[in-house]
């Protein structure tokens, strides 16, 4: 779909009719109506959504890497098929999300180029390495659980194409969560070697997990506007609580522990968990591309994109009729 030119959009403060259009737009969003691609929207709304969906899509295709690397080692036929299916879903989610972002006027190629040039972010958790099979179990259960809290909320958001993509994604994530929990139950009820592997993975992943929903509301500069426009419906801290309240008891039930330095305590009165605040400077440092394996992730994506180029070009040429002549 062709986007109208910038001049005609009048979507910035000061443009003719901006205030009137903004009032109508905000009234529609407040009513719970979805915003659709052809609608008038403030430029700031468009830019925020592009940024958000782009990061989300990048996270899916970067998230495919730590788990993908363990596909060859998956330790049963069922686990092997399920892990391929799960990583495949992540690639599929990337496809759906890039497409949703494209409806706002940015092409998938541009977005993938920005990712591999290090100009666009992806989720903090995928800047860390998956060192053992137990890491795959922890990612599939706890990180997917944390992501589902976020995605279920976003699926109720105001932008139609993003909400529709997320409905489909949440449906598939239900399989991911079950698959992840099932693997963790096997490990937690398995041999000492398996239990130790799982606990070790939890210990290493707990920090990235605590940081997953983003900086505390005290530090997050976007939250208020995003919530007014129903791009976001819950604060980062509220999402983190929702995750902790639901999943910490399940972890403890499996005999898992959380590293003591987090000082996690359940407050019976408020029914919430208290904890030592993560180091948000470190979080920012990591998502800017300085995590333990940030460079390797981007290099993997870059090489994969480069090596696929001849395939993409060949298919495009074959389809357009620009075929190479047949040999004699």
């Amino acid at each position: 779909m062709v986007q109208p030119t910038r001049e005609r959009l009048n979507d910035q403060p000061g443009d003719p009719g901006f205030e009137e259009n903004l009032a109508k737009f905000e009234a529609r969003v407040a009513r719970g109506d979805k915003v659709e691609p052809g609608d008038w929207m403030p430029d700031a709304y468009r830019q925020q959504l592009i940024r958000l969906i782009h990061v989300h899509a990048n996270s899916e295709i970067c998230g495919a890497l730590p788990e993908g690397t363990w596909i060859p080692h998956a330790p049963s036929l069922k686990r092997k098929m399920a892990l391929v299916a799960k990583v495949q879903d992540e690639v599929g989610h990337g496809q759906l999300l890039y497409r949703a972002a494209e409806t706002l006027g940015k092409s998938r190629e541009e977005m993938i180029d920005e990712l591999i040039e290090g100009k666009a972010k992806y989720s903090n958790v995928f800047h860390y390495p998956a060192e053992t099979w137990a890491d795959v179990c922890v990612i599939a259960w706890l990180i997917d659980a944390a992501a589902i809290v976020n995605q279920k909320m976003m699926a109720e958001g105001s932008y139609g194409p993003y909400a529709r993509a997320l409905k489909r994604i949440c449906y598939e994530e239900a399989f991911h969560l079950t698959h992840g929990y099932d693997m963790c139950i096997s490990m937690a009820t398995g041999t000492k070697l398996q239990r130790d592997m799982l606990q070790d993975a939890v210990n290493r992943w707990w920090k990235p997990i605590m940081m997953f929903h983003g900086p505390s509301d005290k530090e997050s500069k976007h939250t208020e506007l995003l919530m007014r426009w129903r791009i976001k419906l819950k604060t980062n801290d509220a999402q983190r609580q929702e995750f902790l309240v639901k999943y910490l008891p399940k972890m403890f039930n499996l005999g898992l522990t959380v590293p003591a330095e987090w000082d996690l305590k359940f407050d019976e009165k408020t029914r919430t968990w208290t904890y030592n605040e993560p180091d948000w400077d470190e979080f920012v440092h990591v998502v800017r591309g300085n995590g333990p394996v940030s460079a390797q992730r981007l290099e993997t994506r870059r090489l994969s994109h480069e090596h696929g180029r001849w395939v993409r070009e060949a298919l495009a040429a074959a389809a357009s009729g620009r075929r190479v002549p047949m040999p004699n």
Partner: peptide, 29 residues
């Protein structure tokens, strides 16, 4: 074939090829 899952030449083909890999594992089972 599943070694390519997640790093295929384009997202759509990555998905399609991964499905054929899963099918073959299912046949093996």
């Amino acid at each position: 074939n599943s070694e390519w899952t997640g790093i295929g030449p384009i997202l759509e083909e990555d998905i399609a090829f991964s499905s054929t890999a899963q099918d073959k594992m299912g046949h093996a089972l």
